[in-house]
């Protein structure tokens, strides 16, 4: 009798595990579904540039500012954050160079994992090109994010730190990401929740993100995304100070 019960238990447990494994879709299907849920590959392909504007806030210290991001296919980016008393913080990626310039630290070139991370973020059609950006993707489990069941997907890039994303089981939209931000200050865990998807040029963009880093909260609100607007080429040109750093590095 006891053997029968044990066999039954084993059958039930294994059956449940099998059913659970069956319930988890592949990471590939989840990531492709996200592309479809946000407008479809064709809609993404019609975009060649975008100018994103919004606000940025750090509620705890009480800092607020504005941000503008210019991006162009396939991988050019220039962002400006004007953050009240901290001043202007510019960053860019162009021609394989990833850089930053601020009143606080001056100009600098990004390298290593920091460069890889910023370079991935500069990819204009990153959602469509996830296979190239993340050679390994795996569905881990189902977890709840703000009351919504999500597929938890681990993404491993060719270089740089892996990240975990949470896609809504119901809508297919990305709701949360957990990653490790790398900078000369060190590695810091970053948790970002995104919401308020709105359509711009036939593609859904999350217009609100709430990021937790080292106990500090940062809230970004996108107010407008202008699609295929002509962007002056000088926005993507390397600033003279950055060119000087490249020349200096080359001379060494």
């Amino acid at each position: 009798m006891q053997k029968s019960i044990a066999r039954w238990l084993i059958t039930v447990v294994c059956g449940a595990a099998y059913a659970h494994a069956q319930a988890l879709p592949t990471a590939e299907s989840i990531l492709d579904r996200f592309v479809e849920a946000t407008g479809g590959k064709a809609a993404y392909q019609q975009h060649t540039s975008e100018v994103m504007t919004g606000t940025i806030a750090f509620p705890t210290p009480g800092l607020t500012g504005r941000l503008t991001r210019y991006a162009s296919a396939p991988d050019k980016e220039y962002s400006v954050v004007e953050l009240g008393p901290i001043g202007k913080i510019e960053s860019g990626a162009s021609g394989g160079v990833v850089w930053e310039r601020s009143a606080l630290l001056g100009p600098r070139l990004k390298s290593g994992d920091e460069k890889a991370q910023a370079g991935r973020e500069a990819q204009f059609r990153a959602p469509v090109e996830w296979r190239r950006l993340f050679p390994k993707a795996e569905t881990l489990s189902v977890e709840t994010v703000n009351g919504e069941k999500c597929y938890k997907v681990a993404l491993t890039p060719a270089s740089g730190k892996p990240e975990t994303r949470f896609y809504s089981r119901k809508s297919g939209l990305l709701l949360k990401a957990v990653a490790t931000a790398v900078s000369p200050m060190g590695e810091i865990a970053v948790e970002v929740e995104v919401s308020d998807y709105k359509q711009f040029g036939g593609v859904l963009y999350p217009t609100r993100s709430r990021q937790q880093t080292g106990g500090q909260e940062m809230v970004i609100t996108i107010t407008d995304v202008r699609i295929n607007e002509a962007i002056p080429p000088q926005h993507f040109e390397l600033p003279p100070e950055i060119q000087a750093l490249i020349s200096k590095a080359a001379a060494k």
């Binding site: 001056g106 000369p184 200050m185 810091i188 865990a189 880093t213 080292g214 106990g215 100070e241 200096k248």
Partner: peptide, 15 residues
């Protein structure tokens, strides 16, 4: 070093 993060006070050399 804080409870949830460790930060380097790194130096970015000026030109």
């Amino acid at each position: 070093t804080m409870r949830n993060a460790t930060l380097n006070f790194f130096i970015n050399p000026r030109a």
